[in-house]
């Protein structure tokens, strides 16, 4: 019995942490703070995944998302040398009245999504079914092997693209010449 309560507590606590972390994240001035909040948000999301029976997804979330992608962000933040100056910029770029319209739009969108979710009849009674990692693996190597291949294509092209776009320019060129070189 207490397991049911524990399940509820953990589930809703994670939901709350996710939402709170996200809200905090989008309103920070400091880039590193925002990234840390994003990591917290992804970790709590991983907990939710596990509670929904998707252990593999939880693992992926932690390893790839919170682990690799966020670290990539952190590196770029370091390269962009965002320090006190940029924090001041961010403060200037975020006046209070700038939040109104996006919030309104997002609220409307959310309400529509909720209406969509709760209208109509569900096809069958459903509940949480755990999916074992073994089943996911069999599906990946079986019917969905093409997804894996396509994912590898995508990653390869992303790799090469990022490599080319962000290459180091010779430092004696001015920014105009840099533009010309980029066009070529």
């Amino acid at each position: 019995m207490i397991w049911a309560y524990l399940y509820n507590i953990v589930f809703y606590a994670s939901c709350g942490v996710t939402v709170l972390a996200t809200i905090l994240m989008i309103s920070r001035h400091n880039a590193v703070h925002a990234l840390l909040y994003l990591i917290i948000s992804s970790l709590s999301l991983a907990i939710i995944f596990y509670l929904l029976g998707a252990a593999f997804a939880a693992a992926l979330e932690v390893i790839v998302y919170a682990g690799a992608v966020m670290i990539l962000f952190v590196f770029v933040v370091m390269m962009l040398n965002q320090g006190q100056r940029s924090a001041a910029h961010e403060a200037a770029w975020l006046p209070a009245r700038g939040w109104i319209l996006p919030s309104v739009l997002a609220a409307i969108l959310l309400s529509l999504l909720l209406i969509g979710m709760y209208s109509g009849q569900p096809l069958q009674p459903y509940g949480v079914h755990g999916v074992a990692v073994k089943d996911v693996g069999i599906a990946l190597f079986g019917p969905y092997v093409l997804v894996v291949e396509l994912a590898s294509f995508l990653l390869l092209s992303g790799l090469i693209g990022a490599f080319h776009i962000a290459r180091k320019m010779p430092s004696h060129m001015s920014s105009n010449e840099l533009e010309e070189v980029d066009h070529g």
Binding site: L105, A106, I108, L109, L112, L113, I115, G116, S119
Partner: peptide, 12 residues
């Protein structure tokens, strides 16, 4: 976002 809202509203 506005367009998505409108389309969703129409569809719903």
């Amino acid at each position: 976002a506005s367009a998505a809202i409108i389309v969703l509203a129409l569809a719903l």
